[in-house]
Amino acid sequence: MFTIAFLTRRVDGMTAEEFFEHYRTTHYDLASRMPGLVSYQQAPIRHGAGGWTTPESFPDYDALSIYTFTSREAADAAFASPEGRLVDEDTGKFIDWPSVLSIAADVSQRFDGSLA
């Protein structure tokens, strides 16, 4: 599996409420239609007392998006597809592109526990 994680923050002038409304609806719908996508996760960043580290590692960031594909080639094809281009276009509407941090990784092991 090939995973790409994006740490993002909202564009200037957008409230957190506006950001998360767009992120959870419009952007989710577009991203989930990308061909070859195995999984897509949206994770709002916890700040303050809800955070994990002290001091906070990324206090100016709003969300972490995690895309998983079967391979790097599948990810390249997905982002080059018409659906992937729509995701990129939408991203520029509410995410500050210059501040995006990304990391790509080949997942060698994965544990999926049950919450039952």
Rank of each mutant, 00 (worst) to 15 (best):
M14T: 02
E83A: 12
T70P: 01
L86V: 02
A43R: 10
A49M: 15
P44N: 00
G84D: 01
M1F: 03
P98L: 00
P55E: 06
V11Y: 01
S39C: 05
S71F: 00
E18M: 08
T91R: 01
P44A: 04
A63P: 04
F6Q: 05
M1V: 07
P59V: 05
Q41I: 09
G50D: 15
A104I: 12
T53W: 09
A105W: 01
L30Q: 11
V87G: 06
H27Y: 08
Y23D: 11
S102P: 00
I45H: 08
R10H: 00
S114W: 10
P59S: 04
E17S: 13
F69E: 07
A116T: 13
Y40W: 11
Q109P: 01
F20K: 02
V107Q: 14
Y61M: 14
A63I: 10
H27G: 01
S65H: 09
S108W: 15
S114N: 08
A74K: 02
M34F: 04
S99G: 03
D60P: 10
M34P: 07
G113A: 14
P55M: 08
S114L: 11
E56C: 11
L7T: 09
A105G: 13
A31L: 06
G50L: 15
M34I: 07
A63D: 10
Q109E: 12
R24H: 13
D60T: 15
V11W: 05
Y67G: 11
F111M: 06
Y67P: 02
V100E: 00
F6I: 03
S108E: 15
T15F: 02
R9A: 04
M1P: 07
F69K: 02
S108H: 15
H22I: 09
F94D: 00
A16R: 12
P55T: 02
T53I: 09
F19N: 07
S99I: 01
V107I: 12
M14I: 02
A75I: 08
L7F: 04
D76F: 09
T68N: 07
R10N: 02
W52V: 15
R110I: 11
T26H: 07
D112S: 14
T3K: 13
S57T: 15
D29L: 14
I66N: 03
L101P: 05
G84A: 03
F2Q: 02
S65F: 12
S99W: 06
S65G: 13
G113H: 14
F79L: 03
I95D: 01
G36V: 05
A116Q: 05
S102W: 12
A80G: 06
G92P: 06
F19Y: 12
H27K: 03
A105H: 11
Q109A: 12
Q41N: 07
R46M: 13
V100Q: 01
L101Y: 05
T54V: 14
I103C: 14
A105S: 10
I95G: 01
G51M: 06
F6C: 03
S114K: 14
G51R: 08
E17T: 09
E18A: 14
W97E: 06
S102D: 04
F6T: 07
A105M: 13
R24Q: 10
P82M: 02
A43V: 13
V38T: 09
A5G: 09
A63G: 12
D62N: 15
P55K: 08
T15S: 11
E83T: 07
